[in-house]
Write a protein that binds this DNA or RNA. Sequence first.
DNA 1: CTGTTAGCGCATTCAT
DNA 2: ATGAATGCGCTAACAG
Lengths: 338, 338
Amino acid sequence: MNIRRSRPTLHDVARAAGVGTTTVSRVINGGHYVGPEMLARIQRVMKELGYQPNVAARSLKSDRSRTIGLIVPSITDPFFARFASVAEVHARRKDYVLLLLTSQDKAQLELEDLQILERHRVDGLLLVPPRSSSKALLQNLRRLSVPIVAFDRPIASREFSSVVSDNNTAAQHAVRHLIHHGRKRILCLGGDPNLHTIRERMKGATTALKAAGLDVLAEMEAADYPSAEAAIMKHMSAKGKIDAIFGLYNQSTILAYEVMQNHGIRVPERVSLIGFDDFALAATLRPSITVVRQAIEELAQTATQLLLSHMAGENNSPQHIEVASNLVIRQSCGCTTA
Amino acid sequence: MNIRRSRPTLHDVARAAGVGTTTVSRVINGGHYVGPEMLARIQRVMKELGYQPNVAARSLKSDRSRTIGLIVPSITDPFFARFASVAEVHARRKDYVLLLLTSQDKAQLELEDLQILERHRVDGLLLVPPRSSSKALLQNLRRLSVPIVAFDRPIASREFSSVVSDNNTAAQHAVRHLIHHGRKRILCLGGDPNLHTIRERMKGATTALKAAGLDVLAEMEAADYPSAEAAIMKHMSAKGKIDAIFGLYNQSTILAYEVMQNHGIRVPERVSLIGFDDFALAATLRPSITVVRQAIEELAQTATQLLLSHMAGENNSPQHIEVASNLVIRQSCGCTTA
DNA sequence: CTGTTAGCGCATTCAT
DNA sequence: ATGAATGCGCTAACAG
């Protein structure tokens, strides 16, 4: 295996077809200004030889690599996986290929990623920025000097386009929904407060709670089961017991659900629950979980299209787009008991 | 944004450092045969200028692109997402970058993917082959003429390495476990029978059932809720009612669970359930679901390492590796009622 | 419409 | 230990 027999080059095709290299090149690039029978002949020869243009050579010449960098914290996160999936489809449609890099949400790794992508001379970049954007990040992004679109979290500097969810507004809706159900003591369960999404959701929740004259209860330490359990049970045994939980993200919602389940706390009768971010099986659990569902497809598509339009030079000023989420009513908020 | 100011080249570095290009090139490639103070000086200049070697140029010269193609049916499938994640880590460690392509499990798209990767002159390929491998696929794979490792499903021809789960054996174990629980009428719920994994699991199940002198009950039409419901309920109303279900893959397991839930069929008392493939929340559902858990990390790591070793020319004959799965006992099989 | 030619940035002989 | 020169495969002037 692995005998790298040399591939045919454009020259080979030209020679075999008895024409100049320019003509072959033209055929590759759309066949403009080439006679019809000539075109047919060359295409036939290309097929016979199994010719495939060498992207590296074109890249060297044209300074365009036909690649787009994609940096996500983790590709196993369903949210980012779907982003990648949508991006791949749209990129491929324009004959671009995705260079997948993972940052594990570490600023240091993300900087490395940028260097790698710079060496590969990507034509554009889709990235989920690290939790806190450093000067180093900004510098490296500028150094890349290609169009960039930030996804899910904006970059501190306004100079780069971004596409994010309406975290604040959607959180307000969710909390207001709990309030409409007559809930008075609503616990917001986090969530790294350094994260843009968490911060915005918390802000939205706070706005809604204050507007209703309710206390703002928040516990940001809920990264694993023990911490979530401690956080929740503290508020279950306090005098002003909670009667609802707003999960600020996926994981905290699931943990809250598990804590309730294990402690025999009835949902939604005793404590009602809404989570931010839909997840597989949210509808299958009993009770099923009411969630804020982000318009992930639309987010991803918007981001990719925006990048592509930047890359095409059609749209040279940075844009900051917020995409609306919507509340998916299921059982855990108390709407239905089914 | 997007002003592509020209990047410094190796020449620029050489000029700025007052040396020849050869020396700079040597520094980039490890700094052998270069005087220590010279080396330091050049490295300083490179840093000052923010020099990053152009991969396209190196690729053209050396015929190695430092890229690995990754073709998966879908990156939103958690199984393949984890594969990609692990592959990315190991590839990056060797200074390779992943070109992510999606095939949507369509042979036609996969062929296109291969063309794209050929144009990009990837140095190696990790792929999940389509359900049925055509001659066209084999031809295109050979044309690539780079090391290839098939993942999750082998390629019909033995000429390409593959890394897969022990589907057959693991399915035998699972079914035997149900039999040990005294179950006599076990329904196997599929699953596209064209898929290697499904086929092997079904074979394993059949082996175990026949060895125990039990009927082999199988329904392969369970792609969505209605079909799964029809398939299951048919066997619930028949005279020889089923008392267990073996979900041949993720989706059919979840659907089976939902059908039971909606029809008030007690699990595991009335019907016990084991699924092939673990999934998020399998432990959170009530009852929690007993599953065969594939060693996805090990699978992915083995595949990537194998590819890298092939690429390093260390290991030139194709290998076919099977990685053991294990049964994760939870409630749905009947072991615990918790 | 078609052919000739000159680099794109780099690694690599071959000298020195 | 270091430098000068060549060519990887392709595109884009520039001629014809």
